[in-house]
Design a protein around this nucleic acid. Structure first.
Length: 427
RNA sequence: GCGGGUAUAGCUCAGUUGGCAGAGCGUCAGAUUGUGGCUCUGAAAGUCACGGGUUCGAGCCCCGUUACUCGCCCCA
């Protein structure tokens, strides 16, 4: 019986984990510069938390959650709800009126897998809690844009909209519904269902005929209050000043119930049908809804797998692999004992060292050393043990020199060599 | 939940009108004793996804199942 991974999951193999760690490191650097602190919350929460936060009628809550223990708990399908729960439970608002958090975490949704969509997937996300200042909107968007810039991703589009308050939206929805009903016979089956369930989402359609109908449909933006519109225009001006490239998209909407005002997404042409790599927005009512004082907040989530796809299709080069410094070869069992001792000592002093476990021929051991792209190799046998000297071979240029067979000598030589080559910079 | 595509060696894939299961890469072993890369020689490695059917004969044709994959929906 051979086991298989669950549908929609994947194994992160050594090559992948190296790339991911590099990516995470870059994310942490950007977050550090913007002064966001990392937060980690449990992988599962009370089911009720997601029901209340994301919205009972959303697709996620109604059919995509992994719940267990009689529906008491659910594997997190997103992280904003959990972070806000932690924020309130640990009274983080008492430390400072503004809290800036980020996370890199896995989450779970029972969706049909396809390109760039998984049942277990990772998101990097940030939450800026405690300010409704329009500059905080700008900061959050800038952080996302900056991160993509770090990887030289140019084929992206940042789209921004304001979806106003729930009150402003419901007024508009009635009018939109009325308008669409007059075109009922031209609408697709799916859109007819949406018309009842969630008319706002019809704006997302890709059907050309429906796009035509929508081109003269009432626009949500026109139904927002003057205050909301002025706030939005102020945000656009700030982004303009910062030379952030964006497009306003009055048809951009969000899937979760908790969003208010600013909504934004970053799309990429490198992705398939799931072309959104980053999505976020303001949620000024969620914290109050979770029993806290009314507190404004804004954040986004970025799909790690989608980012990796984009980077993979660009010509971005991940930084060089971290190869072993030294391969310790040996000729026979007596020599192996000796060589093994040397290898361990050098590892303890801080070198990256590999040694064979299979008692293979010297030739095979060096082949392996070559495959690992080690910088230096030594081979220890009777001669070396008796003489106390060993040939230290530079595997890159093939040159070798005799050196005392002692961990100290070897360590000093190799670390000196690496300091010299790293300061002169390598091609 | 609904569609399309695919399934052959560790990986990427050929396999003709149905006639002995293949290549490249990788792995392993050799090419003067204890020294890698290049080259050469050789080897191991397969329930042709699974189960039925047609046929003298099926990797290939037919039916079913499963898995993967790309879309719809939804989202990151």
């Amino acid at each position: 019986m051979k086991f298989q991974k669950p549908k929609g999951t994947y194994d992160i193999l050594p090559d992948d984990s190296a790339k991911r760690n590099f990516l995470y490191q870059k994310i942490r650097t950007v977050c550090n510069n913007f002064n966001y602190s990392e937060i980690l919350t449990p992988a599962f929460e009370k089911t009720e938390l997601f029901r209340r936060g994301i919205g009972e009628t959303s697709d996620i809550v109604s059919k995509e959650m992994y719940s267990f223990n009689n529906d008491e708990f659910t594997l997190r399908p997103e992280l904003t709800a959990g972070v806000i729960r932690a924020y309130l439970e640990n009274n983080l608002y008492n430390i400072s009126p503004v809290t800036k958090l980020f996370y890199i975490a896995n989450m779970f949704r029972r969706e049909r897998p396809q390109a760039g969509r998984f049942r277990e997937f990772w998101q990097f996300g940030i939450e800026l809690i405690g300010s409704n200042d329009v500059h905080s909107d700008a900061e959050v968007i800038c952080l996302g844009v900056q991160l993509l810039n770090e990887f030289g991703l140019l084929n992206v589009t940042t789209k921004i909209n304001s979806i106003g308050s729930p009150a402003e939206r419901s007024k508009y929805l009635e009018i939109l519904k009325e308008y669409l009903i007059s075109y009922k016979s031209d609408l697709s089956e799916i859109s007819l269902i949406r018309l009842e369930k969630n008319p706002l989402r019809i704006l997302d359609t890709k059907d050309s005929r429906e796009l035509e109908i929508l081109s003269s449909a009432p626009v949500l933006y026109d139904y927002l209050s003057t205050d909301t519109k002025r706030r939005f225009e102020k945000l656009l001006a700030i982004l303009d000043n910062l030379n952030v490239r964006f497009e306003t998209d009055y048809r951009l909407v969000r899937g979760f119930d908790y969003y208010t005002d600013t909504a934004f997404e970053i799309h990429s042409g490198e992705l398939g049908a799931q072309n959104s790599v980053l999505g976020g927005g303001r949620y000024n009512n969620l914290i109050e809804q979770f029993g806290g004082k009314p507190t404004p907040a804004i954040g986004f989530g970025l799909g790690i797998e989608r980012l990796l796809i984009m980077i993979g299709k660009s010509n971005y080069k991940f930084s060089q692999k971290n190869n072993p410094d030294l391969y310790v070869g040996y000729t026979d069992e007596t020599a192996q004992n000796f060589a093994f001792g040397i290898a361990i000592k050098l590892r303890i002093s801080g070198l990256k060292v590999e040694i064979d476990f299979l008692n293979r021929s010297v030739k095979s051991q060096l082949k392996e050393a070559n495959r690992l792209n080690v910088t230096f190799s030594i081979v220890i046998g009777e001669n070396e043990i008796n003489s106390g000297f060993v040939e230290l071979k530079n595997m890159h240029d093939g040159k070798s020199l005799k050196i005392k067979l002692s961990p100290n000598e070897i360590y000093n030589f190799i670390s000196k060599y690496e300091n010299e080559t790293s300061t002169t910079g390598n091609a």
